[in-house]
Design a protein around this nucleic acid. Structure first.
Length: 152
DNA sequence: GCCAACGTTGGC
DNA sequence: GCCAACGTTGGC
């Protein structure tokens, strides 16, 4: 089993939306590296930190789980979608998405609280210039942050 | 294949 | 709104 961190803008889709929906198709990822993580590496049962980005208080807002393997992202075929990709065909889809399942909401661990922690020195999220919306999390990082969530 | 121009992300 | 960093595009 692997661990991940997925960013989402809460004004678009927050941990509360996921809590309400129980599961959701993770669509709209249009970055090859992030796509490849979903397509090649994310497995059902993998655990996910749900991160709120581009908002007043960026940080880890809860936990989700991969409940479905990657399948073609429907929005790439939808001309009315902002994620429409004219180069994608049903025979040759370009973008995929996994299904996510709500696990728990946490009291937010702000980005500022993650920064500067020696245990998280190598965390991909915190790497200089990182913009990837899906990043791997090591087991050690997962356990460390999970303890912070419980303590909060 | 190079690289300049442009677009996007995302914290501050 | 600013800006650093990165990804993508397209001319050559």
């Amino acid at each position: 089993m692997a661990y991940w961190l997925i960013k989402s803008e809460p004004s678009v889709y927050s941990i509360d939306h996921l809590s309400r929906d129980k599961t959701t198709a993770w669509t709209g990822v249009r970055n090859y590296q992030a796509r490849n993580f979903m397509r090649d590496d994310m497995k059902v049962g993998d655990r996910v930190f749900f991160y709120h980005s581009s908002c007043d208080e960026p940080g880890i807002a809860g936990i989700a789980e991969v409940s479905g393997a990657a399948t073609p992202d429907k929005t790439q075929f939808d001309k009315r979608s902002e994620y429409y990709d004219p180069a994608a065909t049903r025979e040759n889809p370009r973008w995929v998405g996994v299904e996510l399942k709500f696990v728990s909401k946490a009291s937010l661990i702000p980005l500022s609280a993650l920064k500067g922690q020696p245990a998280l020195r190598d965390m991909r999220l915190l790497a200089r210039g990182n913009r990837l919306s899906i990043t791997p999390v090591s087991a050690a990082e997962w356990n460390y942050i999970t303890r912070l969530l419980k303590a909060a």
